[in-house]
Design a binder for these strands. Structure first.
Length: 190
DNA sequence: GATAAGATTAACT
DNA sequence: GTTAATCTTATCC
């Protein structure tokens, strides 16, 4: 297995398609939570909607690290959202995890989500962070190390991927950098 | 030093 | 459909 930093040293929209369908594994208190990434969005420093547009200052500095790191930011003061950095060192690029499909440890995720279950458990970026117990202390974490690991699989065939515009932004709204898996109930918005 | 806006969610009416 | 919750950065005094 090649290093993540090599595998994800790609243009953001290519890396986003590669991360779609990958599996993220989170260990906590002897339990293993595993989930498949079913919805992502790409962000880049050349993109007005990205946190990294202002340069490697403040919260987005992690996006300028080499690929395969975790960038966690606080959304609306309440929600923790998870990104995977891509591209090369010094390039402010990342892929936001918008939704995942639980594969293992769903009962633990349910506890983290205060009893909410069903497809509402992880069908949104803030929900993913909460279900997996990720907060800002994991900002900059290397995704080849415990307790949070990323496993890339073969890229999905194009006919399983839907490409569209991003959600919840007010700038660069026409940039089609949102990717999700067809016919998956955990995708936040179809 | 102060203020406005934001890659959102859940609980209301 | 509307609104409150709540904190960080950027942008202006």
């Amino acid at each position: 297995m090649k290093r993540l930093s090599e595998q994800l040293n790609l243009p953001v929209e290519i890396a986003a398609k590669k991360i779609l369908g990958a599996v993220i594994e989170r260990s906590v208190n002897g339990h293993v939570l595993r989930a498949r990434i079913v919805e992502v969005e790409a962000y880049h420093q050349s993109d007005a909607a990205s946190h990294s547009v202002t340069g490697p200052s403040g919260r987005a500095k992690t996006m300028f690290e080499s690929a395969g790191k975790l960038y966690v930011y606080l959304s609306y003061g309440i929600h923790f959202c998870c990104n995977i950095t891509v591209g090369k060192l010094g390039e402010g690029a990342g892929v936001l995890i918008r939704a995942v499909e639980p594969l293992a440890g769903e009962s633990i995720m349910m506890i983290n989500r205060r009893g909410i279950s069903g497809r509402n458990i992880t069908n949104g970026p803030g929900k993913v962070g909460q279900a997996l117990g990720i907060d800002r202390t994991f900002d900059g974490h290397d995704l080849e190390q415990a307790p949070i690991k990323l496993f890339l699989d073969d890229q999905l065939p194009d006919d399983e991927i839907v490409q569209s515009t991003r959600v919840g932004i007010s700038k660069a709204v026409d940039t089609p950098w949102r990717f999700y898996i067809k016919h998956n109930p955990y995708v936040s918005k179809l």
